[in-house]
Design a protein around this nucleic acid. Structure first.
Length: 422
RNA sequence: AGCUUUUCCUGCACCC
């Protein structure tokens, strides 16, 4: 049984759900009765793949095997719902189950899910519930809450909760400190960020690469790119692999250099990556492509993408979008159109982001007919719901150009998909 | 009993 469970876990972790059915069959044929762990592994697999229907079926189908869902399965389901943005489903399940079932993990998942979907108020209610049930918020709970407050720019609230955490005797860990560092950076307080890193070292909470990457990103965003590079080169003198520069470190610097218009340095840095045994990934390429486009080097950006394709690299949607946007902004709307077709051929979703790039590109170049065409084509194909902002843009541009008939025709199409004119 | 679950860092349009 353990062997089979382990096998299933490996399959699920490698994303190979289709093979799990065979393993399950084999188990049954061998007279090996699946237990809760078996089903938990499967449910986790389905939730990770976004197939919540299948997961729900398993969840409710357990009774056939004389089993009841346990906390583990509840937690997988909750996490799955939240990851898919199905907050209501998650909450429904959470309220349905026996009051004694949820554990600290369940609560932390719910708190995190609510925070991430912008429902901070409800998250706090859940924290109160957990306290009422005798479960004290732990380090993970506080890390979640503090991080979400910082992300919402609620700096003083974040500091207050950190204070509360200390008063409650809950020990901060490295993650807590990393969150505090990123908060200080976001607040523009780099001195404080440095102080926290120093304090970590003194308290035996060794900063890791996330800590330093956060600091480096903060420096870049504060316009202190040179200093950021200095921190990174100091890191590369370290023996400890836990702090040596990794791909995120490089990506952070590449983006920082690009945004500070230090394109040559960015390109040099990327060229040096393989020698440092760190390989560029799609984030690296996207940052560079954006930098090149903003610097008016459309040709080089396009070349870069083609070069990665030749190396067998498969660009992700964000990389494509960046180039599409760059081409649009540079007036190369035909090239952008072509690239979008290529994205489609490669099976990428060309969603509302691509659409708004194209639409604003065409509006900018005065080709309103084409802008409306692209917009209505994708609405009719129900490919995606366009962002209302780009709808406003086209309609307003059309009105300015006195294209009343075209505007009203487009408007009626957009209204059907839920658009409300301003 | 054991095996499976939660929180931290980097890239994209429009809006701000």
């Amino acid at each position: 049984l353990q062997t089979h469970n382990h096998l299933l876990d490996v399959l699920v972790k490698s994303g190979d759900l289709s093979s799990t059915e065979g393993v399950l069959q084999a188990m049954l044929e061998e007279g090996c009765v699946p237990n809760l762990v078996t089903f938990n592994i499967l449910v986790r697999g389905y939730t990770k793949a976004g197939d919540l229907q299948q997961a729900t079926l398993l969840f409710h189908g357990l009774k056939k095997y004389g089993l009841e869902p346990d906390v583990w399965m509840l937690n997988f389901m909750l996490q799955g719902f939240f990851k898919q943005g199905k907050v209501a489903d998650a909450l429904k399940l959470f309220q349905e189950v026996d009051e004694n079932l949820p554990d600290i993990f369940s609560f932390n998942i719910v708190v995190n899910g609510l925070c991430r979907s912008g429902k901070a108020g409800q998250a706090w209610e859940v924290v109160e519930t957990m306290k009422a049930r005798g479960l004290a918020p732990d380090t993970v709970t506080y890390n979640t809450l503090i991080s979400s407050l910082y992300k919402a720019n609620r700096m003083s609230d974040a500091r207050r909760i950190f204070q509360e955490m200390s008063e409650a005797g809950v020990q901060p860990d490295v993650l807590t400190c990393n969150i505090l560092v990123s908060g200080a950076c976001k607040d523009g307080n780099m001195d404080e960020a440095y102080r926290i890193v120093d304090a970590m070292e003194q308290q035996g909470l060794s900063p890791n690469s996330v800590t330093y990457n956060t600091l480096i990103d903060g420096l870049c965003k504060a316009g202190r790119v040179v200093e950021a590079c200095q921190v990174a080169s100091w890191l590369s003198t370290q023996k400890d692999n836990a702090v040596r520069p990794n791909v995120v470190t490089y990506n952070t610097l590449v983006d920082g250099l690009c945004k500070s218009r230090m394109l040559v340095d960015a390109l040099t840095l990327v060229a040096d990556m393989p020698a440092q045994k760190v390989l560029p990934d799609s984030v690296t390429y996207t940052a560079l492509i954006n930098g090149l486009c903003r610097g008016g080097e459309l040709k080089s950006a396009l070349k870069l993408l083609l070069g990665t394709l030749e190396k067998g690299y498969i660009p992700d949607a964000v990389t494509y979008i960046s180039l599409v946007d760059g081409l649009c902004k540079g007036g190369e709307t035909e090239g952008a159109d072509q690239l979008v077709s290529e994205m489609e051929e490669r099976g990428h979703d060309t969603g509302s982001v691509v659409l708004s790039c194209l639409v604003s590109g065409y509006c900018r170049s005065g080709n309103l007919v084409r802008a409306a065409e692209v917009l209505s084509k994708s609405v009719r194909a129900r490919r995606c719901v366009p962002s209302w902002v780009s709808c406003d843009l086209v309609l307003q541009s059309m009105q300015k150009a006195r294209m009343w008939d075209e505007a009203s025709e487009l408007l009626s199409q957009l209204v059907e998909v839920g658009y409300e004119p301003p």
